[in-house]
Write a protein that binds this DNA or RNA. Structure first.
Lengths: 223, 223
DNA sequence: GCTGAATTCAAACGCTCGTTTGAAAGGGAT
DNA sequence: ATCCCTTTCAAACGAGCGTTTGAATTCAGC
């Protein structure tokens, strides 16, 4: 009774999102995907030209989903102060994580790519800039002086993005040695703690930068 | 000329550390390992009973290497204050990371396990407590009040451990969109920034805990 | 109802994987 | 030199992978 109107192509994409988010691109097999989509094995090659073509479609859908993530709208974030922006950034993504919804699956796909990058994803990164990097840069700039040099700016961006990636697989928290129950109230608490820690860390980074740049701090060695 | 004295068994373990750290347990093949060790394919089954047995030996070696990591000696860490302990914790591991030495490879193996956990590693976690968790708990306790409840304690431990895992694959930083040059001076700077951020974050977490526990804060709902 | 293009299907291909097999080689003890 | 046990080796096995093939089916357009 599931979806008589929905075509094979859409079913395949939907099933691929499930499988790739759970096992990554290499780990997810076309047999598993076609089986979940109740389609023939050859369907992937017919509709997408192969496994990579299907994955390309999944990545497209992922990026579009993130672009439409209104709480992370660049204009809205620009008007907030640093702590507010961090809270919106973290809570939005954590919420998606625990709901284990479509957006959570997309987040997980990106996490797989951070560990072992597929050719398809590398092409994507080369062709178009992911909006998430712009969001992260906008946020960290609220904490850092304008003169922060490039290396430090990128360290901060990389670090901010990694804060969420860490928590993207809640099963890690549910197994030993943590054995925590990841329910709504836990995620709420986690968002609160993580926001406070991230704000404090970025503030410390900014303070460090300002101290380094101020003339008074030149108590450095001679020469 | 490499190692006439060294037996096949040791060569296999050494090669397995290289391969598993680069590609994870599932991604590393016995053919690649035996080829690197200049051994026969059947050697792994003869000496270790199979791929899993070999991996078990690699994990044993990893854990022993961490236990012998003197800068992370529990007694020494216990005498330090919070920021000092954090600095030792982060710099020790970052150093191993950039040297791309044996210890760095072990770290990478653990990182693979955080993303997709093998049965072998799960057994390991169940059978013996990894010392790194004790180290992390000792450090975060320096920042948190003794009355911190279990959930929050484990969040802090998990978070601290994740700070290093994030930077464990420097190639991520060397590719777009970061394109940073990861040399000794960069790692040194990274250690400095990461230490400052981690200390600030843990301090904020501790302050939050204390505020929550103080009687004055009971502006909570009635009942 | 027929035609022809689009789609689905079962089966197979070629490849890599971990493992097994049975014979060959090595190396002390007698 | 012979025996026996350990270790190495080339070859093959069975299973899973992504993909290809060619026929069967579906279905709009005439």
């Amino acid at each position: 009774m599931s979806r008589p109107v929905e075509g094979t192509r859409d079913s395949l994409i939907k099933a691929a999102i499930d499988v790739f988010s759970a096992k990554g691109f290499e780990g997810g097999s076309v047999r598993e995907i076609t089986q979940a989509a109740k389609a023939n094995q050859a369907a992937i090659n017919y509709h997408f030209g192969g496994k990579e073509g299907l994955y390309r479609e999944v990545l497209k859908a992922s990026i579009q989903a993130f672009a439409e993530l209104s709480p992370l709208d660049m204009g809205r974030l620009a008007e907030m102060d640093g702590p507010q922006a961090v809270e919106a950034f973290i809570r939005t993504q954590l919420k998606a994580l625990n709901r284990r919804d479509q957006l959570g699956r997309f987040l997980r796909i990106f996490t797989w790519e951070t560990l072992s990058r597929s050719e398809v994803f590398t092409e994507f990164l080369a062709s178009e800039k992911l909006p998430i990097f712009g969001v992260a840069e906008l946020i960290v700039r609220k904490f850092l002086p304008g003169t922060t040099e490039r290396n430090d700016l990128w360290i901060a961006i990389f670090w901010l993005l990694s804060q969420i990636e860490t928590f993207i697989r809640p099963d890690r928290l549910e197994r030993p040695p943590y054995s925590l129950k990841v329910d709504d109230s836990f995620v709420d608490r986690l968002g609160e703690r993580l926001t406070a820690m991230t704000v404090a860390a970025l503030a410390a980074f900014g303070a460090d930068q300002r101290r380094r740049l101020s003339p008074a701090s030149h108590a450095a060695p001679s020469l």
